[in-house]
């Protein structure tokens, strides 16, 4: 399986399955099933360097919510990796939810990842990628028109 990173070199830690990691939560890397409660990482986000989230199928979207909670709610800043059904046509959504590294065997995935941030030059929602949603841009435009 090839590993692609959107943010520098990917971490090389072995990610422990969540059940194992719980017994030694000082370890900096953990792999969650998409039914595992991300909330339990709250006290550890500063120490964690790698969190791996899993897509059993590309069409099972639970890990998108886990990712957003990790980034937005818990403030995790380490590497967030997607594994399993990771395909180029979903990668733009993954980036928006805060993933920054990806395991994928799909041909052309790397090229698609490089393009993924520019497929859509506007976004309607705030997410975890820091992009300004259209509502904010309109707000600024209105203010600029007033001054």
């Amino acid at each position: 399986m090839k590993l692609f990173s959107d943010a520098g070199l990917p971490a090389t830690y072995v990610a422990l399955p969540f059940a194992d990691w719980r017994t030694r939560s000082d370890w900096p890397a953990v792999a969650l099933a998409n039914t595992d409660p991300v909330e339990e990482l709250a006290a550890h986000v500063d120490r964690l360097r790698l969190v791996v989230l899993h897509f059993p199928k590309f069409s099972d979207g639970r890990a998108y919510s886990q990712a957003r909670l990790l980034r937005g709610r818990l403030g995790y800043r380490g590497e967030l990796r997607a594994t399993g059904g990771v395909l180029q046509d979903q990668v733009a959504f993954m980036l928006r939810c805060g993933f920054d590294s990806f395991e994928s065997d799909q041909a052309g995935f790397g090229e698609a990842l490089a393009r993924a941030r520019t497929v859509f030059s506007v976004v309607y929602q705030p997410a975890e990628d820091g992009r300004a949603p259209v509502s904010l841009l309109r707000h600024e435009r209105r203010n600029a028109a007033l001054t």
Binding site: S59, G61, A92, M94, Y124, Q125
Partner: peptide
């Protein structure tokens, strides 16, 4: 409509 369009978290419900 705008909020839900290409919502990154809710496209594979």
């Amino acid at each position: 409509r705008q909020w839900s369009t290409l919502h990154p978290e809710f496209t594979y419900l």
